[in-house]
Simulated scan of single mutants.
Amino acid sequence: MFTVATFLVLFFVHDQLGFSEAQLQFGFYSETCPPAESIVRDVVHQAVTRDPGIAAVLLRLHFHDCFVEGCDGSILIKHDVNDDERFASGNAGLGGFDVVDEAKSELERLCPGVVSCADILALAARDAVAEAKGPFYKLPTGRRDGKIAAMSNAAHLPDVEDSINSLKSKFREKGLSDKDLVLLSAGAHTIGTTACFFVMPRLDAQDPTINPEFFQVLRSKCPHGGDVNVRIPLDWESQFVFDNQIFRNIQNGKGVILSDSVLYQDNNMKRIIDSYVRTNQSSKANFAADFARSMVKMGAIGVKIGVQGEIRRICNATN
Rank of each mutant, 00 (worst) to 15 (best):
F198D: 02
E237A: 13
F7V: 08
A149D: 06
A154N: 06
P52R: 09
K170R: 13
V129Y: 11
C222P: 03
N229R: 14
A289H: 09
T194Q: 01
P158V: 03
T209F: 03
K133E: 11
P140F: 05
P223G: 05
C71P: 01
N211H: 15
H79N: 13
K284L: 08
F28N: 02
N267M: 07
K221T: 14
T32G: 02
T141E: 10
N319A: 10
D243C: 04
Q245P: 06
N280F: 07
S152M: 12
G253D: 00
G309L: 09
L59M: 11
F87T: 02
S30F: 05
P52W: 13
L258P: 01
F215T: 06
R219K: 13
H79D: 12
L61C: 05
D243R: 11
I191C: 04
I54L: 10
Y137D: 01
D290E: 09
I246D: 01
Q216H: 15
L17T: 06
D207G: 05
E161L: 04
G192H: 08
R219G: 03
L139R: 00
S220E: 14
R109F: 15
Q46N: 09
D42C: 01
Q239Y: 15
L59C: 05
N211E: 15
A292F: 13
I164L: 02
I257S: 01
D159I: 02
R313A: 11
E131V: 00
G73E: 05
S177I: 02
V115D: 10
E213A: 12
A292I: 06
E106P: 00
P135Y: 14
V256Q: 04
G90Q: 03
E237D: 15
R313E: 12
S89H: 08
Q245I: 07
P135N: 08
F291Q: 00
V99F: 14
S163E: 02
L76W: 01
D180P: 02
L8R: 02
L234M: 12
D15C: 01
D84V: 07
C66K: 04
I246G: 00
R278S: 10
K138I: 13
I54C: 04
A300V: 11
L167T: 13
Y137G: 00
Q23N: 02
P34E: 14
I191F: 11
T32K: 12
L58G: 03
F240I: 03
R248D: 11
A292V: 07
C111I: 11
A154Q: 07
N91P: 00
P233L: 11
G18W: 03
H45P: 06
L184C: 06
A125H: 06
A118V: 15
N91M: 04
R231I: 12
A103F: 15
R143T: 12
I311L: 03
K174H: 14
M200E: 14
A47E: 09
R50H: 08
I39D: 05
L8S: 00
R172G: 04
C66S: 14
R231F: 07
E85D: 10
Q23L: 09
A150V: 08
V217Q: 10
T209I: 10
H14A: 05
I120S: 08
D235P: 05
P34T: 08
